[in-house]
Computed example of a mutant assay.
Amino acid sequence: MRRLLLTLALLAAPTFAWAVESSPQQRAVEAVMADSAKGWNAGDVVRFMAAYSEAPETSFVTEEGLVRGKAAMIARYNAKYNLADPAKRGVLSFQSVDFRLLDAAHALYIGQWSLTYPDGKSAKGYTSLVMALEKDGWRIVADHSS
């Protein structure tokens, strides 16, 4: 009987979820991603792309292939999306899935992106980003999004 009461007491006891606190580096990268989404949501491609490094080797892998350099990426976004039209661009958000430091100046960020449209439609996918700590903060140096 004691064993039954102890088991019932343990089952009825509150459970606690132990959250893993994110690192300062993760919070800084997430802030960069949140600001990038704000740029998209405002139709501001320059603010959206501020998350990317100015380095010429910065890359973006798309279903069409590899795009190199921030200027080429901006041209692609301008050609593929109508950022001026909120109904066509949707509202972008990111949710962190994984984050790990690769070394003191590089990190891997994996997130889920989500676009919601005024007509109720939505799209989701994943992004794997290699981030580099540059003089102005964390910047994307390699992007593979699907």
Rank of each mutant, 00 (worst) to 15 (best):
G39F: 03
L83T: 04
T62L: 12
M49E: 06
A50I: 05
N82W: 00
T62E: 06
S36Y: 03
P86N: 09
A75F: 04
T58K: 02
M49Q: 07
F48V: 07
S59Q: 11
G69T: 04
F48A: 05
S36D: 08
E30K: 11
S59R: 12
E57A: 14
F94R: 04
V29G: 03
A50T: 09
G90P: 07
K88I: 01
P56Q: 02
Q95R: 14
N78K: 13
K88V: 01
D85A: 10
D85K: 00
R68T: 13
S59V: 04
V46M: 01
M49R: 00
N82K: 08
N41D: 10
S36N: 07
K70G: 02
E57H: 11
M49S: 13
V61L: 15
Q95H: 11
R47G: 01
A72T: 02
A87H: 02
R89F: 04
K88G: 00
S93R: 15
T62W: 10
I74K: 06
V61H: 11
G65T: 10
I74R: 02
G65W: 02
A50S: 15
V61T: 14
N82T: 06
V61K: 10
N41S: 10
A37H: 05
L92K: 12
V29H: 03
V29Y: 01
A31F: 05
S53Q: 01
R47L: 13
G39E: 04
Y52F: 15
R47W: 00
K70A: 04
I74N: 08
S93F: 04
A84G: 13
G43D: 02
P56S: 11
A75V: 03
R68K: 13
V29E: 00
A42F: 05
K88T: 00
S59M: 06
Y77I: 15
M73H: 04
F48K: 02
Y77R: 11
G43H: 06
A34F: 08
M33H: 08
G65C: 10
S53E: 07
G69F: 06
M49L: 15
N41E: 09
E63G: 14
P86M: 09
Y77W: 14
V46K: 13
S53L: 00
A55S: 12
A51R: 08
G69H: 04
A37M: 10
E63H: 12
Y52L: 04
A84Q: 14
I74V: 15
V91Q: 14
D85M: 03
D85I: 03
E57P: 01
F60K: 12
Y77T: 11
E64M: 12
A51V: 11
N41I: 03
K80V: 04
A79L: 07
G90N: 01
A37E: 09
